[in-house]
Design a protein around this nucleic acid. Sequence first.
DNA 1: GAAACGTGGAG
DNA 2: TCTCCAAGTTT
Length: 358
Amino acid sequence: MATDAAALPVAADDFATRLLRWFDVNGRHDLPWQHPRSAYRVWVSEIMLQQTQVRVVVPYFERWMQALPNLADLAAADADTVHALWAGLGYYARARNLHAAARRCVALHEGALPRDIEALLALPGIGRSTAGAILAQAHGLRFPILDGNVKRSLARYHGIRGWPGTRAVELELWALAEAHLPQTRLADYTQAVMDFGATLCTRQNPACVLCPLQDACVARREGATAEIPAPKPARTLPQRETTMLVVIDTDGRLLLERRPPAGIWSGLWSLPEAADADAAHRALARHARVEFDAGEPLPAIEHGFSHYRLRIQPVLWRGAGPIDRVAEDGVRWQPLAALDQVGLPAPVRRLLGGIAVS
DNA sequence: GAAACGTGGAG
DNA sequence: TCTCCAAGTTT
């Protein structure tokens, strides 16, 4: 902790005041969830924005609101509709949690998102930061957020050099986020700290020369903006392999299977998966009563996840005639012409795009 | 506390 | 091409 007065940051009031003044001129004031601003729209945007950048979210948000303009619509929607609207955004548990939370709001909170912090935190998918963002942005209540932008900004401003992934640093940052809260304009302030981190106090090459806090920033003074916050400890990603079946009948339909409830892409429609080509061949017999040859191996694709690297080996079968279908839950034959109506995982879409399916 | 959970942008 | 990681939460 700094001891000499010159090393101390400006007062908390000043921090918020400067940030708000900066925000009025340089902030983002025309994001789609700001006009109109409702608790439902703020909520959906906050969930979509978890670990996801604004420019990626915007088109998904617009499409979502077109289909499900209010909470009651979401609660009444079926799971496949929700999945299809989310497909491509990733972290699909967010969509399932959103759906489940909307239904809980209808059952327990008179069809609206609660304004109470504890009730909000009890809803699936809403943690402390998201709850704070909803309360501050939708209702102007005095709650802090602590997303990646705020963590980075506060760590630099206060010269906190530890990795924010540790409990101690995280708690310290929460305390600072709370201490800096202004007494008014909480919605604007919340947007201001996020805009500040996203556009000025960026991970690389922060624009310190334009910063309204530059004279009080510890990292700036110590020339340590590149070292703060400390990066996550690196590790080598494990490699996994899988085989996926591309089965097309002569009616131009593709065999899809619902992913199991746990694990990657859970609940989404996808290509049937097997451990290897032989297992894929055997699996095929479960879905279609036709004799098949060994199938045609297609070029494999590599896909990097956050925690492992996956090599997908597709194997193609084309039916000699319309394939006799076995009725089974979690299986469907989807016309290739209507494939975009299904929420398929991104690598699967890419894989299919590389095949002359028609 | 660590691991799981997706995708696309940026350097 | 490859690494890092972005408006985090859950188990």
